[in-house]
């Protein structure tokens, strides 16, 4: 089972890498189509602003298929791992990183299905791939759980919920990054209007970012609450300002500010996108936190 899980993981990595290549090809094909359009050749433009050429749609479909393949391969890997260890695949940094990559991939595919913005993959998939590469560098040996983690129900639910939140925040980050990149290109090129190059329209990105956060934020809230419940059972106090707890609260406050910023005049768009980037930085800080700040969450399996 452990071996099967490893093979499925490799398969997931390969399909993620391939999918990324196809998504890049898709974007390039779209870019070419956009150029052709300015030259007056036949193309189609969707409502959301993406221009596609004759082969673009086919490449996009292959990219999506590979993306789903990666999701399922990783899902199998995690399921096999769960069977092998007897607990949710969240007990050390290897398992947690694989699960994080799964969260990002799944969130991306879900948003692609709903909003048909394949360009988001250009940011989201490399982040997921980086997570898997990172997982590869960590020993994947199965060790018995330390006493604090011996709570199967809370271990599974607390971390599974966190994965959903982190995955959504990765999508919010992807849309914010594409938003800011467009502003940056416009600023560097000294053009009055950002946009073009087959990239999604700014208001579409703003909207996707918001929708990703309103999925992620309640899940982050639930992660913190479940963490407090667990802490109260295992350590005897629901809040002890442990560095990981604190970092998750910092993340919560940043996304909380984002949600307020977005309904305020003058904070939509650029500033909101910057808050999303800051929020994802905090998410990663929370995630990698136990590597350098010790504290009660220091069970990473790395010494």
């Amino acid at each position: 089972m452990e071996k099967l899980s490893g093979y499925a993981f490799i398969a997931a990595m390969l399909s993620t890498a391939l999918a990324t290549i196809f998504y890049v090809a898709y974007a390039l094909s779209g870019l070419r189509a956009a150029r052709m359009q300015t030259a007056g050749m036949p193309t189609t433009t969707t409502v959301t602003g993406f221009t596609s050429g004759p082969r673009t749609a086919a490449i996009g479909r292959y990219a999506t298929m590979l993306g789903w393949l990666a999701v399922f391969a990783l899902l199998f890997s995690l399921v096999f791992r769960t069977i092998a260890t007897g607990h949710g695949p969240f007990a050390n940094m290897y398992e947690f990183s694989a699960a994080f990559a799964f969260g990002i991939l799944t969130a991306y595919m879900w948003f692609e299905r709903r909003y048909h913005q394949r360009i988001l993959a250009l940011v989201a998939l490399p982040v997921a791939f980086a997570m898997m590469v990172y997982a590869m560098t960590i020993p994947a040996t199965i060790e018995p759980l330390v006493p604090a983690l011996q709570n199967n129900l809370l271990l599974t639910v607390h971390v599974a919920v966190a994965i959903v939140a982190y995955g959504s925040f990765a999508i919010a980050f992807a849309s914010a990054a594409l938003y800011l990149i467009q502003l940056f290109i416009a600023w560097v090129g000294n053009r009055p209007e950002p946009g073009g190059w087959g990239l999604p329209r700014l208001d579409v990105l703003d909207d996707i970012g918001y929708r990703a956060v309103i999925v992620g934020f309640p899940f982050l809230t639930l992660t913190i609450i479940l963490g407090a419940i667990w802490a109260n059972t295992a350590w005897g106090t629901y809040w002890s300002w442990d560095p990981k707890e604190t970092a998750s609260l910092v993340t919560w406050f940043i996304y909380g500010s984002y949600l307020h910023a977005r309904v305020m005049r003058g904070w939509r768009g650029k500033r909101a996108a910057m808050l999303l980037v800051l929020g994802f930085a905090a998410t990663l800080f929370t995630y990698f936190g136990n590597l350098f700040f010790g504290g009660l969450h220091s069970y990473s399996g790395l010494n």
């Binding site: 970092a247 910092v250 500010s257």
Partner: peptide, 15 residues
Amino acid sequence: MVLMLAIAALGVVGS
């Protein structure tokens, strides 16, 4: 919002 971000900043220091 400013207060939230300020508390977040203190939290970073605290962690």
